[in-house]
Design a binder for these strands. Structure first.
Lengths: 144, 144
DNA sequence: TTTCTTGCAAAAGCTTTGCACACCG
DNA sequence: CGGTGTGCAAAGCTTTTGCAAGAAA
């Protein structure tokens, strides 16, 4: 937790950006929340306690988080941008249930290794990647 | 080639849809084009020969292609929807160069197999998936 | 003739931007 | 103070929708 605040503070210092109450509030909520928040979801949560907070501020601040490496933009195919907190832990991928919209995370070092191998074969330098498996989770398998 | 037309014709018949000149034109161009076309790119190509064609018609028609399984919607993170022709061949994944926007395709059955294994472990039924590796291609590695 | 399509323009999302005022350093 | 940041509203983009006229079955 303190980790995230420090990263952001250092980033702001480096860039000559200012610390404001809004940025604090948004960062707190972002770090507290579960992954894969859309900007709107975060905004609505924040509005409950901070009725004056502007939509644009949330957009701008999330972009800052992405810029300083605290968050990553994701697009799952509905028209909304979602932000996921980056962690120092292992990279993880997603199982997205098209039935109930649940998003499960998983990680598999063997897949990661094969990706690197593919990249080497193409003289490609991977900076980032994403793997998403769409389908039905155990709860929804029977329903449809 | 004829394959694509047949699929679409059958689909239209089944759904009570009508065959029109516009749909023919769009299908021809779509089948002829390389993968990963954005709606706008396709529209611009088509406009050259068919100045009266409407933007909305292209959108609507591409949705039909997706619905009948001829095409798949893809979102690579720029705000545009792209359509990729589905083939009966092996599924392939993407290497997306963030330097020059080149999109390379690759396939790796070992990765596919590991995905199935992950799904089994979570009692998840995969209907679809997507793997994208973002980074720099061989040409761009030195430049940045 | 009946139903589906088209092209246009308007509307609808989501995101960004311009601007006056407020705030941080 | 001087430069940033904020909130609001307006503008931008991509995509969707309503509708009258046109084309297919």
């Amino acid at each position: 937790m303190a980790q995230g605040h420090k990263v952001f503070r250092d980033f702001m210092a480096r860039k000559g950006l200012k610390s404001t109450k809004q940025r604090e509030i948004i960062l707190d909520e972002f770090l507290k929340s579960t992954s894969h928040l859309s900007t709107e979801e975060l905004y609505l949560k924040l509005r409950k306690k901070n009725p004056n907070l502007g939509y644009a501020t949330v957009y701008r601040t999330l972009k800052l988080f992405a810029e300083c490496g605290l968050a990553e933009e994701r697009h799952f195919g509905d028209g909304q941008t979602r932000y996921e907190r980056t962690s120092d832990e292992e990279h993880h991928d997603h199982l997205v249930c098209t039935g109930c919209s649940t998003i499960l995370e998983f990680e598999d070092p063997r897949i990661e290794e094969l990706q690197q191998q593919v990249a080497r074969d193409h003289n490609f330098k991977i900076l980032n990647h994403r793997l998403e498996l769409y389908g039905l989770c155990s709860k929804c398998t029977g329903k449809e």
